[in-house]
Write a protein that binds this DNA or RNA. Sequence first.
DNA 1: TGCCCTCGGGG
DNA 2: GTGTACGAGGGCA
Length: 784
Amino acid sequence: MRCLYVYWDVRLLTASYSREEDGVVVELYGKTREGKSIVVRYKGFKPYFYLVEPPSTILEKFSQDPEIYKMEEVELWHKGKVRKCVKVTLHSPWKTPRYRREALEFCDVLAADIPFHQRFIYDFDLGSCVRVYGKEEEKGKYTTELVVNAEKFENIGDFKPPLKILSFDIENSMKNGRIFTIGIAIWENGEIRKESIEGDEKDILWKFLEMIWKEDPDIITGYNIDGYDLELLSERYKKYGMDFLIGRDKSKPQRIVGQFWRLHGRVIEDAWWAVKKELRLKQETLQAVAMHLFGEGKLDVDRTNIDEEWEKDKEKVIEYCKKDAELALRILLQIGIINKYLDLATVTKFPLEDVIHSGTSTWVDSLLIREADRHNIGVPLQGQERKSRKIEGGYVHTIEPGLYHWVCVLDFKSMYPSIIIKYNICFTTLSKDGDIVSPTGVRFLSKEKREGLIPKLLAELMKKRDELKRKMKEDPDNRDYYNGLQKAVKILMNTFYGVLASSFYRFTNPDIGASITAFARDTIKRIIAELESEGIKVVYGDTDSVFFQSPYEDLENTIEFGMRKAEEISRREKLILEFEKILEPFFSHGAKKRYVGRIIWPDEEKGNMVVRGYEIRRTDSFDLQSEAQRAVFEKILDGDIQGAIELAREIVSKVRAGKVPIESLVISRTVKDFKFYKNPDSMPNVQAARKLIKMGQEFIPGMKVAWIVVNARGSKQDVEPYIPGMEFNRKPDYRYYARRVAETLARITDVFGVDEENLLTGSRQISLGAFGKEKKKKTLFDFE
DNA sequence: TGCCCTCGGGG
DNA sequence: GTGTACGAGGGCA
């Protein structure tokens, strides 16, 4: 046994608590600087909350209740003034909701909805990396290398210990669910190693548990494990009367409504969700994402016929399964989400898991609750209202559509955070006596009278970000490290605005959010008006950016002009406006947020295209749409507008004439068990599945079905299943498809005055003179 | 315009 | 476990 005063430096990964015979123990799981897994235990912390000016009835009731450990009088600022409150401390965190509900019948209640482990973190003011002083204990139920009973904590600078990531994938029978194999890929010390588990299903399940205990991964991943593999595993363990004990304290993963799992000691991060959050892709299948990132796809196994494939060639399926686990792991690593969240954990002072699996409002809580506690400011409960009154957003400037040259783009640096700081906007400064009046008539106290908590925190973050950016330049060896952190600070600053604006966040109300956007709209409109009064053509503006035409038609003078304007306006507005880029040319549209441009400055981005607002992600899309859109875009970006319009017409008329490959019209979607649909008859996917069954084809709920629309007129669509390799002998509703394609392409061509109807009716006699006739080039759409 | 329903990924 | 996903699109009132 070690002596006292030993310490460990720990990066926190998860936090939770459990009940033991002699009380509740908070468990902080993490990794030491040396890379050892550790659980840090702390006993004796108790849950509490506050009653505001409570009537004696509730106090008497509570004072006789043995569940209540103690009650103390305190003073807290709440709803504009300091009030007498009572701090109620309980024995058991899981009983808090009951006492909160009871108390709410009598008075306002504060800080009664903070998860217990987070309450602990706030009260000990822990960061994401801590030095733990304590004593090492026997391992007991834990799978970690170290078990420590903590005596005290100290905050230390952040570090990134090596993390171990285990990715897995299951192949199972579509008919009866039986697991054939589990493929595993493990990331450790910069290398990936692959394993697989086969055999009798019960053996597989047991070996999987042993594998997790032995490998002791920090992060568990896989592709759509939240929605599929974890659920399936839970069921299969249950079927054999086994427990799915993969936690670091040998507990089960717990499903928190829908697809979202929590586990003591390990972070479950689904690679698919990571992809959704980080990349905005039209297709998010493992195949598509792997191709997109690595130019490398899955192995060749027909998973719609997995039972047959398994019978035919088990080795092949095992390889396929291992490959999927590996791809999911590489995707997770490639998109850098773990690093990003480690940086966010550092700036939000949270364990990794809390950053990943809690809403962004909780990130803000992490800083704001601590700050409120330090100032004896009451922490209100999160609003009960589900719906948020929508506040008015940013200002979007519009002018006539057209082609512009030498367009300077200026952007505000952290506009909303800057505005919050500049006007001292906070729930603590909201006051009828305020000297600062927002455009919506809401008043805030000036900084001299009372500095707001939120502006104070944001100013600190702003300063921290500037420091990090400075270090990035001064210390090129650690550039990536500082860059990651400064980006995380930026995300957190914007999150502050996000929670203030979007809903009933515990510390705010819509008046505050609306004031922020109103100040912002006033600012940008004022800037546009000033530029116009100087005779500068403002082309576009959106929320925190302004696009205007340079009076010069060369790069050097335009750069100089943009720089000068950015400086002038920044000085005048006392906000920082940055000269972001020059677009040459630039196509502006009408009211909607759509434009295209080619960057010619700064040099690093030279030649890149900026395309905004044209993509639509319909769930019933078919290949021809995206192919057509891409082809038309290529024309436009070459400057061949006339050619683009002609191509769009040509495609639409080809579709209407039925001169397109049938496969390009296939729409596909999954179909659940019919009983899950409120209105199954109205759904084309259900209709297709029913017809499949009638045709004697196999249909299993959850399967993806493909179909072609054969008649879209009438009250509901008639669709016909499409089976690859089988001849399709119905006639597609080409009018319907032509309309859909025209709708897609019109999003582009209506910028040039060619709308959906126009594309459809296909009158070819538009004036060719305007843009000059170009020679027809070979395109993707030379169907003949 | 706002609300409700559905989907996506996986086998 | 002091909790209860997520964002986007379509249909409909």
